[in-house]
Simulated assay, not measured.
Amino acid sequence: MILIKTRITSKPSPETTITESFYFSSSANRWEQNLPTTWTPPVDIFEIDDKYIIRMEIAGMNEEDFTIILEKNLLSIRGIRKDPELKRAFHQMEIHYGEFHFEIAFSALIAYEEVTATYENGFLDIALPKAQPRQINIQND
């Protein structure tokens, strides 16, 4: 079995819209505010035959809004979803905007030259083919 470790990081930026949740506590008879939270897009990580697939659900972006870097065994996905309008009076807010950063460290070898990424219909798909062992022949001088 191949172990895949994930680490999700996100920090607010000037363009990050922070969600503030309010709820009514009947026992205390007052409104309370949860601490602001940052957001991370939902991500599926799965394996098929000869590759790993990372699928991130992140609508409302363009290809140039993503930065995807694979270095050694660490895949880093960064992006920013820009808020189309800044001044609104929200009654409910569940769509998050701003920066996000998602990292995945692989314990298996990846065929770096064959990694591909596509963004279509609000899904970012990254295919990471597994590196195949190769035989090294001894050369005579």
Rank of each mutant, 00 (worst) to 15 (best):
K72D: 13
A28G: 09
R88P: 01
E103S: 13
R78G: 06
H96C: 08
N34I: 07
E57T: 04
R7Q: 11
Q33R: 15
D141V: 02
D141M: 11
K5F: 09
K51A: 15
K82T: 06
H91S: 08
P41H: 02
R78K: 13
N34H: 12
G98T: 02
L74Q: 05
F106R: 01
T40P: 00
E113L: 08
K87Y: 15
H91T: 13
A111I: 05
E15W: 00
S25G: 14
H91N: 05
D141T: 05
I126T: 03
F102A: 13
L109M: 12
E85L: 06
N73T: 15
R134C: 09
K72V: 13
I69Q: 12
I8M: 07
T67L: 08
T116A: 01
I136M: 07
I80C: 05
A131F: 05
H96G: 01
E57S: 04
K130P: 06
S10T: 12
I138A: 11
M1V: 12
D44S: 11
T9W: 10
M93L: 13
I18L: 09
I69F: 10
W39Q: 06
E15C: 02
W39P: 04
A105K: 12
T67F: 08
I54G: 05
L124R: 02
I2P: 15
K11T: 12
S10G: 10
A59C: 04
I69C: 04
E120L: 14
P12K: 03
A117I: 02
N34C: 10
M93F: 12
S10R: 00
T6D: 06
I68D: 05
K5S: 14
P42K: 06
D65A: 01
L86H: 02
I48N: 11
E57H: 07
I18D: 03
L3H: 05
N34G: 03
A117D: 04
S13R: 01
K130E: 11
S27D: 11
K87H: 15
E32P: 03
Y97I: 04
L3A: 14
I18V: 10
L86S: 03
S76M: 13
T6N: 09
M61Q: 04
A108P: 00
E57G: 02
G98I: 01
K130R: 10
E63K: 11
E114K: 12
R55D: 15
H91G: 14
N140S: 03
I8V: 13
T17D: 13
G122K: 00
N140H: 03
G60H: 01
T17V: 15
F90W: 14
S13H: 03
S26F: 12
W39T: 06
T118Y: 07
H91A: 06
K82W: 04
D49L: 07
Y23N: 10
D50A: 04
S27H: 11
L3E: 09
K130Q: 04
W31I: 11
E120C: 07
D49R: 05
A127H: 06
M56L: 14
N73C: 02
P42I: 03
I53S: 11
I104L: 12
S26T: 15
F102G: 02
N140I: 07
P42L: 05
D65G: 01
A131Q: 06
